[in-house]
Design a protein around this nucleic acid. Structure first.
Lengths: 201, 201
DNA sequence: TGCTCATGTGAGCGGCGCTAACATCCGATC
DNA sequence: GATCGGATGTTAGCGCCGCTCACATGAGCA
């Protein structure tokens, strides 16, 4: 696994550490990762990583940022070429839940670092959120949507999405070990349900 | 903080360790807890805790079980004297979300130990879930509820509840630092919304 | 060619989880 | 009441950890 190296200097150690750490976290979770094991795996001394990351927390943050970019890219791909906000929202939910099912360890890491998840929820996604809220507002004017706070409606939609993803990574009884395809179906079905309402009243 | 002790033996070390650990986790999270610090705080040697807990994981599991019982008790109180399943479900959601807002560290710990959260979601709550599903089934026969899989409807309800709680403990932008009262309002509003449907279609 | 400084190494500090060998004393038994 | 075995405490210590410091190396620029 650990590749040999002829010269004293590595050449691209920072990237190498990041990639190795990313793979290790994805496969085994962030809890088990140690700086020393990471250095060993990368073929350098145990002090070398600290030339590139001030401490373990920064390393994990960098991994989380990379994972967050991956997730963001999946969301971008999923919503590309869909112009109405509702379709975008549903495609986003599906992509989000699928990412959680496929990379639970990375998903957990992203969520566990507020600065990363905060940035993730801030940048691009806020734009989409505002579009969704605008759509909700229109729907209310047309009498199609109940007269609740549009912010609340958007938040509840987010909560359903996040809740499905979290139930999967937290291994709740009926959604543990879901295949990517089952995760897709579940996310689609649940968002459809939210739109129509479950009707208990 | 650490109380003195006259005799060689502590007398009730296991409970003392559990209580101290519970408080420390509640206040500062499970990540920062160390067995040595816990022993120090309790006023015993660093090896003593291992007479009562095989390893750190077991200690954390015991703390998680205690937290899970507390949560369960809150849910029991919230649903007591409410006979219809729908009212119970909404009261449960409120209590669940409030617990997450008031004890995010304990909530996270419970969710991070599958055996504990699995048991939590299994025992009493399965009974309530079955009642909810029965109600959904009746509602469908009466034409009040869309004709989706009752299991899916129940699962989506759970997801909304869990998602709200998780967004709070994960410190998502619009729900971080929610007061207990705000958490209550949010949970109530969101469940109402789910019932009526957000109407986008 | 020679200097500088980013980037590597090795040794080591204090804290960790956990174990082993030994100390204490509670309480069952006579 | 004395005895003594086992539950429960202690001290010492192993290996791993995050992290630091003094020093080594060598790439790139003057």
């Amino acid at each position: 696994m650990s590749s040999e190296r002829k010269s004293y200097h590595h050449g691209n150690l920072r990237e190498a550490l990041l990639e190795t750490a990313f793979s290790l976290v994805d496969a085994e979770g962030a809890e088990g990762l140690s700086m020393r094991a990471l250095a060993r795996e990368t073929g350098v001394s145990s002090a070398a990583p600290f030339r590139h990351f001030a401490d373990k927390q920064r390393l994990l943050q960098a991994v989380a940022e990379k994972a967050s970019e991956d997730l963001q890219q999946k969301l971008d791909e999923a919503t590309r070429d869909r112009d109405d906000a509702l379709t975008q929202f549903r495609a986003m939910t599906v992509a989000y839940v699928r990412f959680a099912a496929e990379h639970p360890n990375l998903f957990r890491l992203v969520q566990s670092i507020p600065s990363v998840s905060g940035a993730f929820l801030g940048e691009f996604n806020d734009e989409r959120r505002l579009k969704l809220i605008a759509l909700i507002y229109e729907g209310q004017n047309a009498g199609l949507i109940p007269d609740a706070d549009p912010e609340l409606i958007a938040l509840s939609s987010e909560a359903l999405t996040h809740g499905l993803a979290r139930m999967i990574v937290d291994r709740h009884p009926r959604v543990r070990d879901l295949s990517s395809e089952d995760a897709r179906k579940l996310a689609l079905a649940a968002t459809q349900l939210l739109q129509s309402g479950i009707g208990l009243s």
